[in-house]
Simulated assay, not measured.
Amino acid sequence: MTSRVSLPLIQALRDTARRLATEAPYQWGHMGSCNCGHLAQTVTRLTKAEIHTQALQRYGDWERQLVDYCPTSGLPFDQTIDEMLELGFSRADLTNLEKLGDPAVRIGIPFERRNAMRHNQRDDVVLYLRTWADLLEQQLVDALPLPAFAEPALVAAHA
């Protein structure tokens, strides 16, 4: 799961889900229009074509590129990955996004839908992104300190 939960990270997930649900072209086999490609568009403000062109400078899909990622390579695609990591995503998060595979996210999806999900279906990607954002948002809420004036019953219920 994500190493640094933040409002900008959650907003990036929500913005990506909204764009995918309403307008954006989706193509799982295209490095700039797939699951990670769409998130990269949101985070970096690069176009799908720019991301795809960067990715072609080295071999492999997102999973392979994340394995081969080197922060000092100087490759434009590694700089794209840098921006995503700086926002708080981990390489494991991005690998899981490409295959909709994070168990912590999937458990938040109703069983019937979870078992029918396919990593290359737009609606399933949108659901995964929204569920992930909801999960991270709940983690932020749970981490907030209770106000000093909180009733003792509330403190006990929160513990």
Results as ranks from 00 to 15, higher is better:
Thr131Lys: 00
Val155His: 00
Thr80Asn: 10
Tyr69Cys: 02
His158Asn: 12
Arg130Gln: 06
Asp82Gln: 12
Val141Gly: 04
Gly74Ile: 04
Ala148Asn: 03
Gly108Cys: 09
Gln79Val: 11
Ala150Met: 03
Ala157Arg: 04
Phe111Gly: 05
Glu98Pro: 00
Leu94Cys: 12
Met84Phe: 00
Leu127Thr: 12
Pro103His: 10
His52Asn: 15
Val105Leu: 13
Glu98Arg: 02
Ala104Gly: 05
Leu136Ser: 01
Ser73Gln: 05
Asp124Ser: 10
Ser73Thr: 06
Leu56Met: 11
Thr95Pro: 00
Gly88Ile: 08
Ile109Lys: 02
Tyr128Cys: 02
Gly108Lys: 05
Glu98Val: 04
Gly74Gln: 03
Glu86Lys: 15
Leu140Glu: 10
Ala156Trp: 00
Asp142Phe: 05
Gly60Ile: 03
Leu85Met: 11
Phe89Ser: 05
Ser90Trp: 04
Cys70His: 12
Leu94Asn: 09
Thr131Trp: 02
Glu98Met: 01
Asn115Gln: 13
Tyr59Ile: 09
Glu151His: 15
Asn120Ala: 07
Ala150Cys: 05
Glu151Ser: 14
Ile109Asp: 10
Asp142Pro: 02
Ala143Lys: 00
Leu94Arg: 07
Leu87Gly: 11
His158Asp: 08
Thr95Phe: 02
Leu56Trp: 11
Glu137Met: 11
Ala55His: 14
Gln138Gly: 10
Trp62Leu: 08
Phe77Ile: 15
Arg106Thr: 06
Thr131Arg: 04
Tyr128Val: 09
Glu63Gly: 01
Pro147Val: 02
Gln139Cys: 05
Arg64Ala: 03
Ile81Tyr: 06
Tyr69Pro: 04
Gln54Leu: 12
Ile51Tyr: 08
Asp142Leu: 08
Asp124Asn: 13
Ile51Cys: 13
Asp124Phe: 06
Phe111Leu: 14
Asp123Ala: 15
Asp93Phe: 07
Leu129Ser: 05
Asn115Thr: 12
Met117Tyr: 09
Gln121Leu: 09
Arg114Asp: 05
Val125Pro: 00
Pro145Asn: 07
Pro103Glu: 11
Val155Gln: 02
Gln121Cys: 08
Asn96Lys: 05
Val126Asn: 07
Gly108Phe: 01
Val155Ile: 10
Asn96Cys: 06
Arg58Leu: 00
Asp124Arg: 11
Gly108Asn: 07
Arg91Leu: 07
Gly74His: 03
Ala150Gly: 04
Val105Tyr: 09
Asp123Val: 15
Val126Met: 05
Pro152Trp: 08
Gln121Thr: 07
Pro147Glu: 06
Arg122Asn: 02
Asp134Trp: 15
Arg113Lys: 15
Asp124Cys: 11
Pro76Glu: 15
Leu135Glu: 01
Gly60Arg: 13
Pro152Val: 01
Val67Met: 10
Ala133Phe: 12
Gln79His: 14
Pro110Arg: 13
Ile107Pro: 01
Leu87Ser: 09
Ala150Asn: 04
Pro147Ala: 15
Gln54His: 15
Glu112Met: 13
Ala148Asp: 04
Leu144His: 08
Ala159Gly: 06
Glu63Tyr: 10
Ala92Ile: 14
